[in-house]
Design a protein around this nucleic acid. Sequence first.
DNA 1: CTGTTAGCGCATTCAT
DNA 2: ATGAATGCGCTAACAG
Lengths: 333, 333
Amino acid sequence: MVTLKDIAVKAGVSKATVSNVLNGNLTKVSPCKAKEIQDLIAEYGYVPNQTARSLSNKSSRIISLIVYADCDRNVLADPYISLFAGELLRQLQKRGYFGMIRATNDYADILQNLNAWNVQGVIFFGTLDKDIREIQDRAGIPFVFTDSYSSVRRINNVGIDDYRGGMIAAEHLAERGHRRLALFAPGVETGSDLDKQRIAGFAFALSKYGVALPDSHVMLAEPRRADVMARSLLDLPGVTGVFVTADIAAIELMQALKRLGVGVPGDMSVVGFDDIPMARLVTPGLTTIRQDITQKARIAVEILERRLDAPSCPNESAILDVALVSRESVGYV
Amino acid sequence: MVTLKDIAVKAGVSKATVSNVLNGNLTKVSPCKAKEIQDLIAEYGYVPNQTARSLSNKSSRIISLIVYADCDRNVLADPYISLFAGELLRQLQKRGYFGMIRATNDYADILQNLNAWNVQGVIFFGTLDKDIREIQDRAGIPFVFTDSYSSVRRINNVGIDDYRGGMIAAEHLAERGHRRLALFAPGVETGSDLDKQRIAGFAFALSKYGVALPDSHVMLAEPRRADVMARSLLDLPGVTGVFVTADIAAIELMQALKRLGVGVPGDMSVVGFDDIPMARLVTPGLTTIRQDITQKARIAVEILERRLDAPSCPNESAILDVALVSRESVGYV
DNA sequence: CTGTTAGCGCATTCAT
DNA sequence: ATGAATGCGCTAACAG
């Protein structure tokens, strides 16, 4: 393994000079020497050791992608997370950063990780509470939260208009004549504020049509329990439509409904949320509230990078829009 | 940020002693001192700096997960890859390693990455050629390949019985009376040997039923082109079934077929490969050849870890079995 | 059992 | 414009 020192001796210069050309401090080195050194670097395929660089100036270029979840789960099995994380990774790699994904719900583990690797920035998925803020402060590095509704203090956040998403779902259903509706929010069990927003928006829009959303019609079950969900849904008299706050759960629900002989959209209309790629591949195609996951990732990285370059940059927040994607899972009554 | 030195002075001992308790060299330190030091560590929330540790003894605990693909693609958008990578990450994290995902098809980039981070091991996804071997040799660290068919030299590999998978698909179709079949291998364009195996197995099993697979029935189109695929398929006279070597492509194909008014399995039977979670969620449920992605990931990590512990361990190879999962996409003729 | 010393590879003063 | 020296935080000999 060839080191900076090696190419320094080969070039007959000091390590400092090589270091300078490496870091683009071309003002401090004569053009001819610089050229010569760059050639040597290319010739020997020298690549600077990040761990050493990181030790020496605390610039690891590592960005931690923390998924707040049980650490023993395959978090990338969730289509939304994998799409989002994949795009984040791509954006980071393109900019010369190294993304490190970590699934955990243990604050000590997070802090440990950040310290261990001199992590320079964090993009946080999932719910947020005071503890994570504390970590943010202790860590002294930029954090970008996603889908955060906490307002304890100003933070960097990129999210979507969840409330409006809920409204759009309700309006779509209402306009097609549905008057007795239910709602399935699989994320609430994790304390998800975003589901609460979607629920609130949904209920509000419904009220404009004079339709109520009884508490008993709001189901906060756990994800994977599509079967019990479907049964509960059928127990609700006269319900013709359901809003599910995540596509993956909506799709599971449709599947469960089908097993029970309930037709979608014939007997039951379903509206999802996210517009994951799978939504257009199932039958019937899932009508859903689309969010632009790719753009969200891009913006998250942009916000982070701005703070990496200028640490004292004021916090900023980006709220992306959502839109209805009408496919076949909603019928008319 | 508290360092090893800090807690050394607080404990009134030398750095070496602290280092020893940290690394479990308890034989070299008195129990009482050890206890005392561990308490200090806990009290101050001291966490060893990996970059320093890595510099000093070249043990970074970083494992590189290299996805051989265009570096400008969101590789985690592929359900198979994200499921596999997610499980790999989980297994690595559980064992105290740090997985670093990197999408690239540039050998220089790979080598650079390995050197930069003192990467200790690599799990490689995707096609393999001599260049990557060269990297393996140059890097001097264990590599585990997945789904590799190269036999230039002994390597560590974890794969599945692709040939048999192809056979099973053919048998299933043949037993249901299909005699004119086609095949769609979306991965071949990337030079995938695995698709070649699946094709060979499929053709062989078919031959036992006295049915041929004309070259014109073997379509090596690019992925995402489901529409043109569907049309080509319909241009083949009398074909009643198709084997698609990846579920995601099979599902796209079914979708395209539906748009063209072709019923599955009524007018066309489809068999996929992988059994990704989506396969059971589409309609009709996709009949497919199942591979255990989770187990594959687990074994890959086990093989790697064995070599991390004993670098001179002989190469080993694991071939997992596959099985038919019969759902609704194959009919009788 | 414990402390001292010497690097790992690099960036960063401060000299020249 | 360039070089010598120092230190980042830790581990690994070796001494005591």
